[in-house]
Design a binder for these strands. Structure first.
Length: 112
DNA sequence: CTGATGACGGCGC
DNA sequence: TGCGCCGCCATCA
């Protein structure tokens, strides 16, 4: 039981970090991973979101490094995420979210 | 056990 | 700027 329990708890921490991203804000997979104490855990975070079923989770606020949408351009998931981001006031340039201001780092704008 | 895969990241051309 | 290759990690066939 303890082994599996630890894994589940890790996922819970990932979800908590994602839920902590408020409306209009964005974060990167790697940033979320670092935030909860994981190094090189971007893929771990991505997989957690993929397994997640909770519709209340703001998964669309999590992007790839540089602010790019992770899904393939043209896919249904891509369109859905792009739609939600624009609805929250963001601007898209292709598959990349246009970051307003001086932040050269995504995570810097959120928790830097 | 070995090789392939993916909602990732970074460096090089 | 864009694209490709390679490194990382956890799963899966």
């Amino acid at each position: 039981m303890p082994i599996l329990s630890a894994v589940v708890e890790l996922d819970q921490r990932i979800f908590a970090a994602v839920r902590a991203i408020s409306h209009g804000q964005i974060a990167s997979y790697g940033g979320v991973a670092t935030q909860i104490g994981l190094t090189r855990g971007a893929r771990r975070v991505a997989r957690a979101l993929g397994n997640n079923h909770d519709a209340s989770l703001p998964w669309h606020r999590v992007l790839r490094a540089g602010g790019r949408i992770a899904f393939a351009k043209g896919s249904a998931e891509f369109d859905e995420q792009a739609r939600r981001l624009v609805a929250e006031g963001h601007q898209l340039r292709g598959s990349q979210v246009v970051v307003v201001g001086l932040a050269d780092s995504l995570d810097a704008q959120l928790w830097g």
